[in-house]
Design a binder for these strands. Structure first.
Length: 413
DNA sequence: CTTAGGG
DNA sequence: CCCTAAG
């Protein structure tokens, strides 16, 4: 855990407690208690009012003397966590209380994987401003996500709601500010519950995530970076994971502290960097640059289906913005590709069951729930998709050979 | 930049 | 998931 002074981690609660928090509600900080539980309690406190949250989110930050203690504050965090997205996602999928919490939570969790986020956590001042920005962003959510609820996510709405009603719900309104305050608090609670579940994921993870959010959302598409890399040729293997555009702090950090980069790299980028490095060392021509493949969770598939049912096929940017707003790694193209695969899957499943079941058993990938596949098929018939041309023959048995070949090529991205 | 298609 | 072409 070298570079970030793990030994200092235990100091964190004291450090934080040492800050002036006069403006913060008293019962938020149970002054006694031990170490992290103190902090967790602060965030998990179910009864705390919005003042506490606002203070924490930076609205009261300037009163906390953060400026002078900033360095110590950030160093108190434990950066040794690994972006265990799968586990977290599992948790999030279990809690489908409301679509909002899911969305927000997703946002927090997704960007845990963003390496730059970790480095961002070194700069609390920027976080402070960014968090403020984030709060305002939430308040003024252009899509009214705070009020969003689809029939899939909201158990309260048992029946299917019409599109008109749905869009009405998503339209920003005057109450959105009030709602968002509560929602932020709720998401805080929810999120911190997960944080407490796994000690490897310290608060810095989420705090830094907040700081990053809303900065360069749509610009995060890798198109330009990829083409630039093509022209430039190759990259150093030591920074092989840096094929994606990074923020300033990242680059700077690599250059300055070389000795720490290695151990840090292992911790922060986990399988992603590991994969890239191993590949680069051997044959850099192979999958030189390939975004780390994230498995599509059933949750995401549901979101995709919802998005298509609401926007229609082809509006992938809209779908991305609304349903995958928090998932920075799902580009509109990714979403479209997934839909393509879903279509294929829906038809292939309809065609044959035994072969498919076997294949799934072998791949060990959880199958897409049948109801989802049904929805996919419905949408497919509803919205014509060019690919349906090549899928149409899925009904005849004459071209079964070609189909099986395609099935083999199919990857569950 | 966003989509559609093919790799 | 990547890459490219076309609008």
């Amino acid at each position: 855990m070298g570079p970030f002074e793990m030994d200092r981690a235990p100091d964190f609660p004291e450090t934080f407690a040492g800050l002036k928090y006069d403006s913060v509600d008293e019962n938020v900080f149970h002054s006694s208690e031990d170490k992290m539980s103190n902090m967790k309690h602060f965030l998990m406190e179910p009864k705390h009012d919005n003042i506490a949250v606002d203070s924490f989110l930076g609205l009261g930050m300037e009163n906390m003397g953060i400026g002078s203690n900033m360095e110590e504050f950030s160093h108190g965090f434990d950066f040794s966590f690994l972006p265990d997205y799968g586990g977290l996602d599992y948790c999030s999928t279990q809690d489908v209380e409301a679509g909002l919490e899911l969305e927000i939570l997703d946002g927090f969790l997704d960007e845990v994987d963003e390496v730059e986020d970790i480095y961002a956590s070194h700069n609390l001042s920027s976080i402070e401003t960014e968090v403020k920005k984030k709060v305002s962003e939430l308040d003024g959510d252009p899509y009214g996500l705070m009020n969003f609820s689809s029939e899939t996510y909201s158990p309260r709405i048992s029946g299917s709601i019409g599109l008109s009603e749905w869009s009405k719900e998503t339209v920003p309104n005057a109450e959105s500010k009030n709602v968002s305050s509560d929602k932020i608090k709720d998401s805080l609670d929810t999120h911190c519950f997960y944080a407490s579940e796994d000690d490897r994921k310290p608060l810095s993870t989420f705090i830094s995530s907040w700081g990053k959010r809303g900065k360069n959302r749509k610009k995060n598409l890798r198109n330009t970076a990829c083409s630039r890399l093509n022209s430039s040729g190759r990259r150093m293997s030591s920074v092989s994971y840096d094929f994606r555009p990074r923020k300033g702090p990242m680059k700077k950090y690599i250059q300055t502290s070389t000795e720490n980069t290695l151990s840090d790299d292992d911790q922060l980028t986990s399988s992603e960097s590991e994969d890239d490095i191993s590949v680069t060392n051997t044959s850099k021509s192979r999958s030189d640059r390939r975004k780390h493949q994230r498995m599509w969770t059933v949750d995401e598939v549901v979101k995709l289906v919802d998005g298509i049912s609401h926007f229609g096929v082809g509006k992938w940017t809209d779908i991305k913005n609304l349903f995958f707003h928090s998932a920075s790694y799902r580009t509109p193209v990714d979403i479209r590709d997934k839909w393509r695969n879903l279509l294929k899957a829906s038809y292939t499943e309809k065609r044959n069951d035994s072969i498919q079941a076997e294949e799934k058993r072998r791949s060990g990938v959880y199958p897409i729930p049948k109801d989802i596949l049904h929805r996919v098929r419905e949408l497919a018939s509803l919205h014509p998709y060019p690919l349906s041309k090549s899928l149409s023959f899925a009904h005849d048995s004459s071209r079964s050979l070609s189909i099986s070949r395609k099935k083999k090529k199919k990857n569950e991205y």
